[in-house]
Amino acid sequence: MKGTLWDTLGRSLLPFYFLLVLAYLVVPLLIVVPLSFSDTTYLVFPPRGFSWRWYAEIFLNPAWLKAFQTSLLLGVITAVGATGLGTLAAMAIVRFSRKTSFTIGGAFLVPQIVPAVITALGAFLLLHALGLLGTFTGLVIMHVMMALPLVVVTMTAALRQLGESLNLAARVLGATPLKAFWYVTFPAVAPSLAISAIFAFFISFDELIVTLFISGSHVTMPVRIWADVKQELTPVVPAAATLLTVLVAVLVIPIELYRQRASIRNRV
């Protein structure tokens, strides 16, 4: 079969184009890494010397350490809360007929597509009215809400794939609903629960805009970086950025690999 000039040109250029775009997506993430090891007290490219001092700064400077701890705590609470509530929602969603469950599942996704600044504005106004502005409770509630859609999507998919037959079998054999959930459903969806929890953790851990509006004195890692990006020009921001990127790499890459393997298994 004979192709036109365009086909040949397209086929030979496409791989190069693909690599170029990949580089555009990934290289900027790597560029901050060498900067974070700079021995200078100012940002300079290429970095001079090698030192861990900016990482030490994050863990020894009380302001940075506190921000890191706040983010971790908030992230873990969000992960637990959102995974719990999202799983409940998913268990309800799969009980409906296909069409209804699609609508209800979709309704849970609406917060995801509202521009963050509007969510932030609403959260600010509501928490202010309730006197919860600047409280940790307010932060937790909003973070759980923001992490919920992704958990609902992940768990609905997992539960739908599992189907009801195993659970029914357990019930027929005399298990109470709770026992059937604990011994049958829970172990089967445990990987998806872990994935949901980690995703929820990162949604909270990375969140800036809503947190900026409502956090008051509870400074999280992104808020800390945000404050420093504009004022400080030491390599402490690249160090913090590298730290966050590495954390994502360590937790998210295995998950993505697992999900890909799982999706291939299901296809076969």
Binding site: V32, F202, F205, A249
Partner: peptide, 13 residues
């Protein structure tokens, strides 16, 4: 992978 890295970090780059 980049989707999971904070927008703040990616913009900083």
């Amino acid at each position: 992978f980049p989707l999971w890295v904070s927008v703040l970090v990616r913009t900083y780059a």
